[in-house]
Simulated assay, not measured.
Amino acid sequence: MTAAALSIDENKPAAAWAAVLSMALCVAMLITSEFMPVSLLTPMADGLGATEGQTGQAISISGLFAVAASLLITTAAGKLNRKWVLVATTALMLLSLALVAAAPNFAVLMVGRALLGICIGGFWALAAAVIMRLVPQGDVPRALALMFGGQAIAAAFAAPIGSYLGGLFGWREVFWALTPIVAINLVWHVVALPSLPVAQKRDVLGMLGLLKRPYFQRGLIACMLSWGSAFTMFTYLRPFLERVTGVEVTVLSILLLILGCAGFIGTWAAGRFVKGNVAPLLKLPALVMGGATAGLLLLGFSVVAAGLFMAIWGAMNTMFSVIWMTWMSQNVDDAPEAAGSLMVAAIQTSILLGAVVGGMLLDSFSIQATFIGSIALAAAAILLIGDGRKMLKPE
């Protein structure tokens, strides 16, 4: 790509940051839409006549389609202006929410979640590359932190509000309530995003070339283990809190609110401290979140202890994405779209497998077995990452 294609007109900084904010709202709605079944798992299962483990696959099916979309988007979109690709993915999210809310049975629910997966894969595959074009290189970590501030908003309010409103009005009404916000975001994209033409078409060969880089291979595997650990636990957090901690819907909503509000601390810390050499930071997500999961497993019968460990987990959760996307932007800056596609495919595969394996452990053994599986994956990630230096590109 030419230098001109990697940056927008520097005389329009307001338009660039407005676009970053628009993407932050899209992140909030994507994460809310993707993981809302976590806070509504029990009533959704009851309403659709399925087990909790089966309903958890509503997350894994979106992950499966996100993997496919993330790998194909840069090839399928060809030289289409990336602004309009992002607009199209947001429109697809709107359609998905309507299908899920109106789903008369489990099959239609899964179709809606599959469409959401296409949106997730397409958006995230392009997100980091687009951010790198919206702001100067030195501002990329700050812009990523701002974009992932949408993750903090979703984590803070989506799960507890979804859980609470689901108890009052029903889970379908919660999904319907998201549709006008996504519609507003769709219009904001059209207004705020600058034209983002593609100078050179990316293809599968470019991604295969990246996979030949040893440091990138190690990074992808470590990223997958870390995310797999996180979502083996998070997907089935509600059953744990109901069965082990013994909470009702009101206390459950408060605990989820604590987890989410802690994410704002993580967002602030990411914007302040994630800069320069990220190697020492790469193992922090697996270390801190895995440790918090172990704390829940040991002391989760106490509401106070559960709240404390969920706050720790939530704070690191919002730093997680910034740390790994900053690693990508610094070490694969010559092919950001291809790297973004592979990163998203790796993350979504991990979320998919985490939901599948966690659900199998839950249905076949116990919720404690699901959490033990999460801790094992975190330990594997920590061992692979080490000091992180083997995951940096050669000087």
Score class of each variant (00 low, 15 high):
75 T>L: 06
176 W>Q: 05
307 G>Q: 11
176 W>M: 11
57 Q>Y: 14
282 L>T: 04
217 Q>S: 08
92 L>V: 08
291 G>L: 07
335 A>S: 15
142 R>F: 09
296 L>W: 05
146 L>N: 02
246 G>W: 03
108 V>P: 04
24 A>K: 11
106 F>M: 11
206 G>I: 00
371 F>D: 04
105 N>H: 15
298 L>Y: 01
15 A>Q: 15
97 L>P: 00
132 M>A: 15
124 W>G: 06
49 G>D: 07
341 S>E: 08
32 T>G: 12
233 M>W: 12
46 D>Y: 04
300 G>C: 09
150 G>Q: 08
117 G>C: 04
126 L>A: 08
373 G>W: 03
210 L>A: 08
20 V>F: 05
252 L>R: 11
107 A>F: 03
55 T>S: 13
126 L>S: 09
342 L>I: 02
350 S>T: 00
72 L>E: 01
310 M>E: 05
138 G>V: 01
356 V>N: 06
314 G>K: 12
113 R>A: 04
32 T>W: 05
222 A>R: 09
265 I>T: 14
28 A>G: 14
160 P>F: 08
294 A>G: 09
389 R>W: 08
74 T>F: 06
248 E>Q: 13
168 L>N: 03
143 A>Q: 12
324 W>F: 14
380 A>C: 14
340 G>V: 02
133 R>C: 00
146 L>I: 13
272 R>H: 13
178 L>F: 07
102 A>N: 09
139 D>S: 15
145 A>H: 09
211 L>F: 03
268 W>K: 12
20 V>S: 03
232 T>A: 14
95 L>A: 15
165 L>E: 00
181 I>V: 15
49 G>T: 00
103 A>K: 06
307 G>I: 00
388 G>C: 09
259 L>H: 14
131 I>Y: 05
370 T>P: 04
248 E>M: 12
92 L>R: 10
211 L>A: 02
368 Q>F: 08
228 G>R: 03
351 I>G: 07
298 L>R: 07
16 A>M: 04
152 A>Q: 03
295 G>H: 06
318 T>P: 08
356 V>Q: 09
367 I>L: 10
330 Q>G: 05
193 L>C: 07
59 I>L: 14
28 A>P: 02
191 V>S: 09
283 K>W: 10
300 G>F: 06
7 S>L: 12
19 A>Y: 01
286 A>N: 06
54 Q>F: 00
133 R>M: 04
2 T>D: 14
316 M>E: 09
156 A>F: 06
259 L>P: 01
50 A>W: 00
66 A>F: 02
241 L>C: 07
190 V>W: 15
138 G>Q: 14
174 V>Q: 09
250 T>D: 10
339 A>C: 07
108 V>A: 13
276 G>A: 11
142 R>K: 15
366 S>D: 11
279 A>Q: 12
129 A>R: 05
6 L>H: 14
374 S>V: 00
132 M>R: 13
140 V>P: 02
16 A>R: 08
29 M>W: 03
122 G>C: 07
120 I>S: 11
300 G>R: 10
11 N>R: 15
378 A>S: 15
66 A>Q: 07
193 L>Q: 10
290 G>Y: 04
384 L>Y: 01
151 Q>I: 13
96 S>C: 05
353 L>D: 02
330 Q>I: 01
177 A>D: 04
366 S>L: 02
280 P>E: 12
17 W>A: 12
214 P>R: 13
270 A>F: 01
120 I>T: 11
351 I>R: 10
